Simulated assay, not measured.
Amino acid sequence: MPPMPASAHPQAPSVWQKIRMGAMMGTGVGLTIGFIFGSYSILRGGAGPRGVLSTLSQYMLGSAATFGFFLSIGSVIRNDAPPQWEAARLQLAAPVLRSRNEGFAIMKARWQLEKARRSS
């Protein structure tokens, strides 16, 4: 049986895959930040009546949930448009960069206008 032909256009990730990827990245970042700030808080002020492990886990889980939620939403918002729209936008956008000759010609024209304005 011959192998299946490679698709000319690779499949973009779905919205749910983007949400899941953002949530997993945010959860990882949140766990790390929660560990850092929770450890600092415990070392600075003590663990309190619930103990070290409970206090640290509360910091880590709260931070992981917050970061995961916001990064999942942000990853969907940032990547909402299909890649074809981005390619079309880049083709239609005016170029920002100019060549040295064009920049020098524009600068020279502005100097000429400034001289004419000052002399009159």
Rank of each mutant, 00 (worst) to 15 (best):
P2T: 14
P2Q: 14
P2M: 13
M4V: 13
S7N: 13
A8M: 13
A12T: 12
V15C: 14
V15F: 15
W16I: 06
K18F: 13
A23D: 01
M24D: 05
M25R: 11
G26S: 03
T27Y: 00
G28R: 04
T32K: 02
I33Q: 09
G34R: 03
G34Y: 02
F37H: 05
G38E: 02
S39G: 15
Y40H: 08
L43K: 11
R44A: 14
G46D: 05
A47D: 09
G48V: 00
R50T: 10
L53G: 12
S54R: 10
S54K: 11
S54D: 13
T55I: 01
T55P: 00
L56V: 00
L56R: 01
S57A: 09
S57N: 07
Q58S: 08
Y59K: 00
L61N: 02
L61F: 03
G62A: 01
A64N: 02
A65M: 06
F67M: 08
S75E: 13
V76S: 12
D80K: 13
D80S: 14
A81C: 10
A81V: 12
P82E: 07
P82G: 09
Q84R: 13
Q84W: 07
L90P: 03
L92F: 08
A93I: 06
A94F: 07
A94W: 09
P95Q: 11
S99D: 05
N101M: 10
N101C: 08
E102R: 06
F104K: 10
A105V: 06
I106N: 05
R110S: 06
W111D: 04
E114S: 02
E114K: 01
E114T: 00
K115A: 05
A116D: 00
S119T: 00
S120F: 06
S120E: 09
S120Y: 04
